[in-house]
Design a protein around this nucleic acid. Sequence first.
DNA 1: CGTCGGGCTTGATTCACGTCAAGTAATCCG
DNA 2: CGGATTACTTGACGTGAATCAAGCCCGACG
Lengths: 229, 229
Amino acid sequence: MRTTDMPLIRRSRLFAQVGEPDLAAMLTACFVQTLPEGAILCRQGEKAEFLHIVLSGRVGLFGSAGQEETLVEFFGPGDAFIVPAVVLDAPYLLTARLLDEGRILMWPAAAFRAQVRATGSLAYGAVLLLSGYWRTLIGQIKDLKLLSAIERLSAFLLALAPRETGPISVTLPGGRRLVAGRLGITPQSLSRAFAALRPLGVSGGSRQVTIVDPTRLREFAGARALRAT
Amino acid sequence: MRTTDMPLIRRSRLFAQVGEPDLAAMLTACFVQTLPEGAILCRQGEKAEFLHIVLSGRVGLFGSAGQEETLVEFFGPGDAFIVPAVVLDAPYLLTARLLDEGRILMWPAAAFRAQVRATGSLAYGAVLLLSGYWRTLIGQIKDLKLLSAIERLSAFLLALAPRETGPISVTLPGGRRLVAGRLGITPQSLSRAFAALRPLGVSGGSRQVTIVDPTRLREFAGARALRAT
DNA sequence: CGTCGGGCTTGATTCACGTCAAGTAATCCG
DNA sequence: CGGATTACTTGACGTGAATCAAGCCCGACG
């Protein structure tokens, strides 16, 4: 574990409430790995062996059924993405794959389970983390059930936008293929959806998208007001 | 609070690890209400005021966008369904409505937040509860993204089946309209999906469905193996 | 410099599901 | 018990997105 990892570790919501000495004690059971793009962290159906916390790089969580596979969610630095399988000692529901080269904190499942049970501040951090994830997943389910593909793309882009107003440029968390999966559509349909948004001021290369007027896009998407009506 | 409520309260995963004296102390801040069918516990967009724990009856969580509304998930006794909004002190993403008459434990949001932060065993219970929910939500997202309507219905019915084999009769958690929402389809499509499964041995009245051979249904649905491939 | 290959776009067609519209069965309530 | 209201089913039709199939763009590599 490098000294440069500590600030990254501290930044995770999971450890927000954990005191310095406790944290140091916990981390003795862990190690950090640098892994290449495409590396698989865990595979759907296998028993949980490690909790993974992303220190750098991005990770995609994929669900598969038969031949099909789609991306369910993106994760980035600070995320600990399979807490549930680890605490419940259940098989992974998803496969995690690195989208970039990245550094991953590996925490043996049994040690993590014991720590969560023993350390209130860690459990509290886990509650915060899981609460945030619950909300993103609920948002995604609502999107899938209530919105059209174009509306979902609008909402997705707006969620990426840091500022509320003025022309902005957002970078997609992955290639078109992955974004399509996240939105629950095919790459072809995503392409058409982007084409449909072009008249509304959305222009984009493969990975970088600029929105000339977020407010207008928000009006379009929010004609069917979603997240906090 | 009735004395008959205590066993129901204890049964919730949330309190599994909480000691008797701690539990008694926590509950002083709470009260229990009996509410009629159709009562609304919280409304999408409003600030979280109470944590609700279902003691009896069933609750539906609904998401809405514009005019549309669908059921996102069913909840029953032991479930504490909006923990995330409460701990994060954020607006509800969903509207909760009672599907039957039921008894609900009401826990003021601020008191619950303080307790979770202070009491490790409660935080641990929350981690377990949230972990279980994460998994059901992930399952639902995978279903929506990867399966057809008929396959989703099959998977839903099989998840309700208590035993693995032999003819069984399951009771749907709500009317057809609600089940359709849960599956992300219209009631008409649900009706057709049931019709399509009839040749496979699924017969059903409005609320009670019998599956003559779960194994056969599982084969059909699991030709596209899902949950634990 | 050319050609090879993957990722993106575009068009034509198909299909699953939604929508509209009856019709029928179940439930409620005087 | 009868009539109204609601819930479910069924059919005909329309549509959004998937699928099939080229083409295009751009970086990789001989």
